[in-house]
Design a protein around this nucleic acid. Structure first.
Length: 195
DNA sequence: TACGTGATCACG
DNA sequence: GTGATCACGTAA
């Protein structure tokens, strides 16, 4: 069943990011269903310099300031769409970046979408999984309770010992906050993004 | 390691 | 208006 507000609207964003491992992200776009198990995430809090929300609200990040349980999608490096889940209550702009998935449904559809750059590991990275699942900025602000993009709990329990945590990737600009161990992944999973 | 790529944001 | 920068991916 779908995750509800009681999951998303909590204060502890690293905890939410960790608990998102093993959940299933699904999109239904143009009647095409694609999904994957979340195997790598990163937490971002408005209180630390790694977050887009650290300096306050802008046109780009305004959905981060809405109530938890929505999609925050933005363009990075002029070519990659990035998908985040907004968490916490309105005004407290926390988010979890989904960095990698293990494909489950619609694998052929994903391969078709990735055709231009045919790689075997179609969902192993934040820019790739959005393309594979058809996620783009049109979904910015989309409510995850609806039937376009959502996350379900398949009831798989991930043991604490099976979770790796480390510093987040690609945020050197955040100074000492770049060292926070807020990147989580399922140990040994083949679909984790490359180093 | 290098660079494509274009929106965004902090300056004036 | 302008310019530096960017929560990446790929080729090499």
């Amino acid at each position: 069943m779908k995750l509800t507000e009681s999951f998303y609207i909590r204060k502890n964003v690293p905890l939410i990011a960790r608990q998102m491992l093993g959940k299933v992200l699904t999109t239904k776009i143009n009647q095409q269903v694609t999904s994957g198990i979340i195997v790598e995430t990163e937490a971002y809090s408005y209180k630390e310099k790694g977050s887009h929300a650290f300096k306050g609200m802008t046109k780009r990040n305004e959905v981060m300031f809405e109530l938890g349980g929505r999609a925050y999608v933005y363009l990075c490096y002029g070519m990659h769409e990035m998908f985040n889940v907004v968490t916490n209550e309105a005004g407290k702009a926390d988010a979890v970046l989904i960095r990698a998935l293990e494909p489950v449904l619609g694998i052929e559809i994903m391969q078709e979408r990735m055709k231009a750059n045919a790689s075997a590991r179609i969902t192993s990275g934040p820019g790739k999984l959005t393309k594979a699942l058809g996620i783009d900025r049109k979904l910015n602000g989309e409510d995850l309770k609806k039937n376009i993009i959502w996350i379900e709990d398949p009831g798989i329990k991930i043991k604490p010992a099976a979770i790796a945590c480390s510093a987040r990737i690609g945020i050197d600009y955040a100074g000492e906050d770049a060292l926070l161990p807020w990147r989580f992944s399922i140990k040994g999973n083949k679909w984790i993004s490359k180093k």
